[in-house]
C-alpha cells in the first residue's frame, strides 16, 4: 500500500487541533506530520527520476502546504456535502 493510502486510512492523531493561534507543540507536531506524509508521497514517485534533489524538496514543501490546507477543509463542516459536478457552472 503506498504511503498516501496509509495516510488516508490513518490520519495523524493531531489533526483535530485548531491551527490558528500561537505556535505551540501541537502545531509544530502537526506541521511535522504533514511534512513527513509529503516526503513519503514524493518518495513513492521515484522522484529521482522526476526531479533534481532540490526540486524534490520544493515539491515536498508545496505538497506539505497543500496537505495541511486540505485538512483544514474540514473546518467547512462538509458533512453530507456531495462533490461538485464538473461540466456545469457551480451554483447553476
Amino acid at each position: 500500500m503506498p504511503p498516501h493510502a496509509t495516510m488516508q486510512a490513518n490520519p495523524p492523531q493531531t489533526l483535530g487541533v485548531v491551527w490558528e493561534g500561537p505556535m505551540d507543540k501541537s502545531h509544530s507536531k502537526l506541521t511535522e506530520d504533514w511534512a513527513e506524509v509529503a516526503r513519503r508521497r514524493v518518495a513513492a514517485l521515484d522522484a529521482d527520476a522526476w526531479l533534481p534533489a532540490d526540486s524534490a524538496e520544493a515539491v515536498a514543501s508545496s505538497l506539505t502546504d497543500l496537505l495541511r490546507g486540505l485538512h483544514r477543509l474540514d473546518e467547512l463542516e462538509l458533512g453530507d456535502v456531495e462533490p461538485a459536478t464538473t461540466y456545469r457552472p457551480v451554483g447553476e
Binding site: L45, L66, L73, A84
Partner: peptide, 20 residues
C-alpha cells in the same frame, strides 16, 4: 509531481469543498 502525489480522496474532498 504534486498532482501525482494527490489521492482520489484528496480530489473528492476538494470537489466537496468546492460545492460548500
Amino acid at each position: 509531481a504534486i498532482g501525482r502525489c494527490l489521492t482520489a480522496g484528496d480530489y473528492l474532498k476538494a470537489q466537496r469543498a468546492r460545492r460548500a
